Amino acid sequence: MEHFVILLAGRMEPTPALRAAIEGGRVIAADDGIRHAAGLGLAPELWVGDFDSAPQQPPIALAGIRRETFPRDKDKTDGEIAIEAAIALGATRLTLVGALGGPRSDHAFAHFILALRYFHQGLDIALEDGAESALPLSATPRRVDLEPGTQFSVLKFSNVRGLTIEGAKWPLDNVDLPFSSILTQSNEAAGPITVSVAEGDAILLAQCDPSVR
C-alpha cells in the first residue's frame, strides 16, 4: 500500500499520534500547507498550488523542493491538485494533514467532500490534524480505537440507511436517518467503537485525546 501524506493549510498540532499516523508516508504539500513540513520534520517531494497564500520560498531546509505552479483562476483546489498528484504517483492510502480546521470553514467542508469522493474511488483515506481525526464510513464495519470518554460525531452528507454504532454511550443499531437529522452529533466512546453505514455518505469525526497532545 503506497501511503501519501498531503499537507494542507488548516490547523495542525504536531502530536505523537499525528506523527505516528503519517510515519513512512511520501509527502506532497499543497500551497500554504508547506508551513507544516518543518513542524513535523517532513521533506515534501512535491509542492503544488497557485501559491497565493504560501511563502514565495519555502524554509531554507526545503529549498530544493520541486514545485508545480497552477493559475489562481482554476476549477480545482490546491488540495485537490495535490491529491491527484499523489494518485498519479501510485497512492492507495492518503492522510490529509491540516484538513479539518483553519480560518475558512469552506476549506474544511471541501476536504470532507474530497475525502468521500476518493474513498468511493477505492482509496484508504483519513483526515488528521492532531486535534481531530476523520474517517469516511461504508457498509464495512470500521473499528476505531478511542479512549473512554472521547467525543465523536457522525457527519452526514446525504440520507443514510443502516447506521450502526457499537461501543458508544449512545449506540445505534441499523438506524435510518435523513440528512436533516443531528441525532449523531456529540456521542461519547466507551472504548473502541465500531461504525458502519449500509447506504449513504457519512464521516466519523473524533476528538483526539488531549492527554497525548
Rank of each mutant, 00 (worst) to 15 (best):
A88M: 02
A30K: 08
E2L: 11
Y118E: 13
L42I: 13
R35D: 15
L46F: 05
A134I: 03
A82K: 08
S196W: 04
K156G: 00
R26I: 01
V212Q: 13
S158C: 08
A63Q: 11
H111F: 11
L114F: 02
L89R: 15
E68P: 02
I87P: 09
F179V: 07
F152G: 00
E68V: 14
T140I: 11
C208S: 14
V5T: 15
N174S: 12
Q56T: 13
L7T: 11
A91Q: 11
I113D: 09
I22K: 04
L155V: 14
F119P: 01
E188T: 12
G130P: 14
L8R: 11
L18G: 14
F112V: 06
D173M: 03
F70C: 00
V197E: 04
L137K: 06
V48E: 05
A190M: 10
I34D: 01
S133A: 13
G98W: 04
P44Q: 14
I87D: 05
F179Q: 14
R142N: 12
D129V: 01
R67V: 06
L123E: 02
A131S: 11
P103V: 14
A17Q: 13
E23R: 12
R67I: 03
E199R: 10
S211G: 07
S211T: 10
G24R: 01
P59W: 01
A43R: 12
L146S: 09
I34G: 02
A131I: 00
V175G: 06
R35F: 10
A61S: 13
Q185K: 07
I87L: 14
R213F: 05
L18C: 10
A99L: 05
A88K: 05
A134G: 11
R117A: 11
T140R: 07
M12E: 12
G49H: 07
V154N: 08
D124F: 01
I65V: 15
V27H: 12
D31C: 02
Q207D: 13
G41N: 10
A20S: 13
V144Y: 02
A202W: 02
N187A: 13
P14C: 07
V97N: 07
L18V: 04
F152H: 04
G39W: 00
A38I: 12
L94H: 01
R143Y: 08
T95M: 03
F112D: 06
A63W: 00
S186P: 10
A43G: 07
R117G: 03
A88V: 03
I60Q: 15
D145W: 09
L177E: 10
A88C: 07
E45T: 05
G122R: 04
P71M: 08
